[in-house]
Amino acid sequence: MAISGIFSALVIGLIIGALGRLIVPGKQRIPIWLTILIGIVAALIGTFAANALGVGDTRGIDWIELIIQIALAAGGVSLAARMYVRRHL
């Protein structure tokens, strides 16, 4: 993966975290910085997973890669919300 790919994954990660949080039902009591961090990690892992599956390098918008990233972010937000609430009660 080139530097431009990593940079774009980080920028997209900011958006991915917000979309992942919107997908998870209910109110998540986690800070915004944690949501952004989850989005960045989900974007990077999703990019590597899409490339491993052979669907990450297409022309135009990689819809399958975006779906993988958003699903990972939603799972990460859900997990973090459960863990963060238990820890900060």
Results as ranks from 00 to 15, higher is better:
Tyr84Phe: 04
Gly54Trp: 09
Thr47Asn: 07
Arg21Gln: 15
Pro31Ser: 08
Val77Phe: 05
Tyr84Trp: 08
Ile70Glu: 00
Trp33Asn: 13
Gly56Asn: 10
Ser8Leu: 04
Gly17Met: 03
Ile64Asp: 02
Gln28Lys: 05
Leu72Arg: 08
Ser8Glu: 10
Gly54Ser: 11
Thr35Ile: 12
Tyr84Pro: 00
Val11Phe: 07
Gly56Ile: 04
Leu10Ser: 05
Leu44Pro: 02
Ile3Trp: 14
Gly13Ala: 02
Ile67Gly: 05
Ile3Thr: 15
Ser78Arg: 13
Ala80Lys: 06
Val24Leu: 10
Ile3Gly: 09
Phe7Gly: 13
Met83Glu: 06
Ser4Glu: 11
Gly60Ile: 12
Asp62Thr: 15
Arg86Ile: 11
Ala2Phe: 15
Leu34Trp: 01
Ile6His: 08
Gly46Leu: 01
Arg82Trp: 13
Ile3Ser: 12
Val11Ala: 12
Ser8Cys: 08
Ile45Gln: 14
Gly56Ser: 07
Ala18Asp: 09
Val24Thr: 14
Pro25Met: 15
Gly39Gln: 01
Lys27Glu: 13
Met83His: 12
Ile12Thr: 08
Ile30Pro: 02
Pro31Lys: 15
Gln69Phe: 04
Leu53Thr: 12
Gly56Tyr: 06
Asp62Val: 11
Ile68Asn: 00
Ile40Lys: 01
Ala18Asn: 15
Leu66Glu: 03
Gly39Ala: 01
Glu65Pro: 00
Ala50Gln: 06
Arg21Tyr: 14
Pro31His: 15
Ile30Ala: 08
Arg87Met: 07
Ile6Pro: 03
Ile40Phe: 00
Pro31Phe: 10
Ala2Val: 11
Ala2His: 11
Lys27Cys: 03
Ile68Arg: 03
Gly54Asn: 15
Ile23Lys: 10
Ala43His: 04
Leu34Asn: 03
Trp63Ile: 10
Thr58His: 11
Pro31Tyr: 13
Lys27His: 09
Ile40Glu: 00
Ile23Glu: 07
Gly76Phe: 01
Val77Cys: 03
Val55Asp: 01
Phe48Glu: 15
Gly17Arg: 04
Ala50Asn: 06
Ile23Leu: 11
Asp57Pro: 05
Ala81Arg: 10
Gly60Thr: 09
Gly54Pro: 00
Gly60Arg: 10
Lys27Met: 10
Ala50Gly: 08
Asn51Leu: 10
Ile6Ala: 14
Gly60Val: 05
Ser78Glu: 09
Ala74Lys: 14
Ile16Phe: 02
Trp63Glu: 11
Ala80Asn: 08
Arg29Cys: 02
Ile36Glu: 01
Arg87Tyr: 11
Ile36Gly: 03
Ile64Phe: 05
Phe7Met: 14
Ile16Asp: 00
Leu44Asn: 01
Gly39Leu: 00
Tyr84Gln: 08
Arg82Pro: 02
Ala73Tyr: 04
Ala43Ile: 02
Leu37Met: 08
Gly76Pro: 00
Gly20Lys: 04
Leu22Pro: 06
Ile70Leu: 04
Trp63Gly: 07
Gly60Met: 06
Leu10Tyr: 06
Asn51Trp: 12
Gly75Trp: 03
Trp63His: 13
Gly75Val: 07
Arg21Val: 05
Leu72Tyr: 06
Ile3Glu: 13
Gly26Met: 15
Val77Lys: 05
Ala2Pro: 15
Val41His: 03
Ile40Val: 09
Val11Leu: 02
Gly5Asn: 14
Arg29Gly: 04
